[in-house]
């Protein structure tokens, strides 16, 4: 019975498309679009409110416009949406708390990788003769000869 989970997108029928508010002046409108890119649309599938054609996304972008027009800074706008939808609303995860791992782990992997590579290659300073294309190795030569058969 409760399996009838319905949301805007799953419900039968369409919301009539509604026009958003007119854009603000170009400087502020750029901010609206940039902030909109970083907020997740509440009724779509993982798309930002700046990218979604859904009518609810227009409404959310209008809200961003309204907050920008009120002179709110980016952080205050993000806070408005986080207050309502949690961190789920942020397309770009915070660089703190549980999502800090997302930002740090790749750096850690890179550092470990570089250390591993440095330890497995020769020091550039080491005096070595120029490497030969084919290592002179009896065993290898035999394997090669075997394979040629």
């Amino acid at each position: 019975m409760i399996a009838l989970v319905l949301s805007l997108v799953l419900a039968q029928g369409y919301a009539p498309l509604r026009q958003g508010q007119d854009p603000l002046d170009s400087v502020r409108e750029q901010r609206v679009q940039a902030v909109g890119k970083k907020l997740r649309c509440a009724v779509c599938q993982g798309v930002s409110i700046a990218d979604s054609p859904a009518s609810m996304a227009r409404a959310q972008l209008d809200k961003v416009r309204e907050l920008v027009a009120e002179g709110k800074n980016d952080q205050e706008i993000f806070d408005y949406f986080v207050e309502r939808y949690g961190e789920w609303a942020l397309m770009e995860p915070k660089k703190s708390g549980i999502t800090l791992g997302l930002w740090l782990a790749p750096v850690l992997v890179l550092v470990l990788g570089v250390l591993l590579i440095i330890s497995s290659t020769k020091k550039p300073a080491a005096p070595v003769a120029a490497a030969t294309e084919e290592p002179a190795d009896d065993y290898l030569a035999k394997v090669r000869a075997d394979l040629e058969k």
Partner: peptide, 27 residues
């Protein structure tokens, strides 16, 4: 690793902490 981590991270936070997060394009 970045792609795998970013894709799985929402599942990790949800599975371990029941916290829903989004890892989107900007990340």
């Amino acid at each position: 690793f970045v792609v795998l981590l970013g894709t799985l991270y929402p599942l990790i936070t949800e599975g371990l902490l029941h916290k829903k997060i989004t890892v989107g394009e900007p990340y």
